Amino acid sequence: MGKVGERVPGAREMRPYATDFVARVTARTRLPLDYSVASLRVVDFLIDGLRKGGADHERAHETLLGLGAYVGEVLVRRAGAVWVDLDVHQRAYFAQPVGVRMPDGRVWNPLGKVRNSFDTGGPEESLRTFYLTLHGRARRAVA
């Protein structure tokens, strides 16, 4: 997801990375980034704004990485996922070093999903819809 040489945080670092991102973003604005499923609509709105504002990947990189970490953390907190460092085959497939493993064992790529949403836009790339249609979620919200 990053430029050559840029390091994406590992699985153990993703929760603090997402928390720091939310603190920085909400310090300047009143965005309701509260790790709820509903807050994923805000993420959709932010990504759409970046794209329509003409941001390129280089300028949007840090924000997209932060939003990807946030989406992954929503999956951790609400769907029972855990952050995982991806193996060599998963890294090649997802083009990311980290992802989340769902309670049923499936691995998903929130960082790549955010990037795809930025690249293509449209309702089919909605992060809220991604969550709501995601296979392998815990049946009940996890705190």
Rank of each mutant, 00 (worst) to 15 (best):
A81P: 03
L67F: 06
M14Y: 08
R139Q: 04
R101T: 01
L64M: 02
R106E: 02
R51N: 04
L65C: 05
E125H: 14
F118R: 04
D85T: 04
P32E: 15
R59M: 06
Y35W: 10
R115Q: 14
T63D: 09
G72E: 01
A69H: 06
R24V: 00
H61E: 08
E124H: 14
W83P: 00
V142N: 06
G80Q: 05
V4L: 12
T129Q: 09
S126A: 07
V76I: 06
G112F: 07
M102P: 01
M1H: 08
P9Y: 04
R128G: 10
R78I: 00
V76E: 01
R139P: 02
G72H: 03
D34T: 15
G54T: 08
R24S: 05
D85V: 07
R115A: 10
T26M: 10
H89D: 01
Y131F: 14
R78F: 00
T26C: 09
P97Y: 11
S39C: 12
V71W: 03
A55W: 05
R78E: 06
R128S: 14
A69T: 03
R115V: 14
E6Q: 15
R78N: 00
R128M: 12
F94V: 01
T26P: 05
Q96P: 10
M1P: 09
L132K: 11
R91I: 11
R139A: 04
S117V: 08
Q96A: 15
V107S: 00
S36Y: 13
V98Q: 02
R41S: 15
A141T: 06
E6V: 13
F130S: 12
R106D: 02
A143H: 09
P103S: 01
F45L: 12
A92R: 12
D48R: 06
G80C: 02
D44N: 03
K113H: 07
H135K: 11
G2M: 03
R7P: 04
T29Y: 10
R51V: 02
G10L: 11
G68S: 05
V100S: 01
A27G: 13
V84G: 00
R7Q: 10
Y35F: 12
R51A: 08
R77E: 06
T26F: 06
V74R: 00
G2D: 03
D119T: 11
V43D: 10
R77C: 03
K113I: 01
G121P: 06
V76G: 01
M1F: 10
L86Q: 02
T26S: 08
V84Y: 07
H89F: 00
P16L: 14
A38L: 09
G136F: 12
A27K: 15
D48L: 02
D56N: 10
D104E: 00
E6M: 14
R15V: 14
F130D: 12
L50A: 14
R7D: 04
E62I: 03
R137C: 03
D56P: 01
A92I: 09
V43S: 10
F94E: 03
G72R: 01
Q96N: 15
P32A: 14
V84S: 01
E125K: 08
S39K: 06
G121H: 07
